[in-house]
Amino acid sequence: MAARAGVSIATVSFTFSQPHRVKSATATAVLEAAAELGYVPSGNARGLARGRTGAIGIFSFDYMVDGSGDPDPDSVAADAASTSANTFPLYVDEVQYGAETESRRLGYALMLGGARTLPGEHAVTDIVGRVDGLITFSGIVPLEMMRGFAGRLPIVELSGEVRLEGVHTVTVENEAGMRAMTEHLIDQHGAKRICYVGTSTTAEFAARYEGYSGAMRDAGLAPQPPLESRPAREHTTIAAISGQLTLGMPDAFLFASDQEAIVALRLFEQLGVSVPRDVKVASFDGILAGLLVSPTLTTVQQPMHAIGRAAVGVIVDALAGRPDIRHVRLPLALRIRQSCGCGGTD
């Protein structure tokens, strides 16, 4: 390639690794020679030379898997499944999109891995061995494994609280956001009996329940124990709501995630329950699907793209030598729409 372009081997190397050091006309000649020869720079070779892979890993749960097993990707069943609510871009997908765009902007590749694609420990270990830094969602990687990884590469844990010294975090104001939504239902709609639907098994979901409970107590109302439900486990959401309806209709249902709220809206339609006339509905996350259901979903908006971008930024700063462990906390916003009775579209 150097001979074809009429330059030195060092100039070819600089054109691909440090293009700012090469004159524009020279770089053009090198790139034209590369195109003629079908040359593509080897990421592996460049990684060996730099002692880096040039990749950042993101390891997540998969909310689009319902636990019943994946269909054959070439089957009609797989095509049919692609139209279900659980295959719509969700929280995890939006965070990954933010991480991917920021990685690309900063010159890194992004490697994706999921806790259900392989047995969890093997899958994350496989990723760690191939990347310069790791982003993981809260609670997926066991603490002992995380402790071992943190000695080898920078790690950012998303959505939860600080679990381990030496691990960066990027999270949101889960408790404050759910408190604000509960206060909206109480102050603006006079709701007194608000049922909370969701799990509290992870730090972020526990914080959301605390936000609801605190707002209820401050208003002189009794918080209800959470009705156990999990995102992407539709049967748990349906069972939680159905069980409550046998005891009576509350003033409002407050859901820990938009996915659960969307399942509920579909169930209410089937049962002939009018939202928001018969019951108010609000939730948390701000996924795009909340704008496409009827009524549109009142929710606490997470800055999902910003979460992904911030996590990549923390990793890249650490790789550049920034020594401090960072704990980034991003703000939230209420999106007041139709399901609570306000009639807004955003």
Rank of each mutant, 00 (worst) to 15 (best):
A2S: 14
I9M: 08
F14Q: 11
T15E: 04
S17C: 05
Q18F: 07
Q18T: 14
V22I: 15
K23A: 15
A25E: 15
A29D: 10
A33S: 13
Y39C: 11
P41F: 06
N44T: 14
G54F: 08
F61R: 13
F61S: 13
D62E: 14
Y63W: 08
G67C: 07
P71Q: 08
D72L: 12
D74G: 08
S75D: 11
S75C: 11
A77C: 04
A78M: 14
T83N: 11
S84V: 12
A85F: 06
N86E: 10
T87A: 08
F88Q: 14
P89M: 12
V92Y: 01
V92F: 06
D93W: 10
D93C: 03
E94A: 09
G98D: 07
A99Q: 09
E102R: 14
A109S: 15
L110D: 09
L112R: 02
L112P: 00
A115H: 08
G120L: 14
H122M: 12
I127F: 01
G129P: 03
G133H: 03
A150P: 06
G151Q: 13
L153R: 05
E157K: 01
L158K: 03
E161P: 00
V170P: 04
G177T: 01
R179S: 13
L185A: 03
D187Y: 02
Y196M: 14
G198P: 09
S200G: 11
A203M: 10
A206G: 09
A207D: 13
R208N: 03
R208Q: 07
S213N: 08
R217K: 15
G220M: 05
L221F: 09
R230A: 12
R233M: 14
T237R: 02
A240Q: 05
G243Q: 07
L247M: 12
M249V: 11
A252P: 07
A252W: 00
F253H: 05
L254C: 10
D258Q: 03
Q259A: 12
A261K: 02
I262F: 01
V263D: 08
V263C: 10
A264Y: 10
L265G: 01
L265F: 07
L265N: 04
V273Y: 12
V275K: 01
P276C: 10
V279W: 03
K280I: 04
A282C: 11
I287C: 01
L288C: 04
L292W: 14
V293L: 04
V300N: 06
P303L: 10
M304I: 09
G308F: 09
V314S: 07
V314Q: 09
I315S: 03
R326I: 00
R329F: 05
L330K: 04
R337A: 06
S339T: 07
G341N: 07
T345V: 12
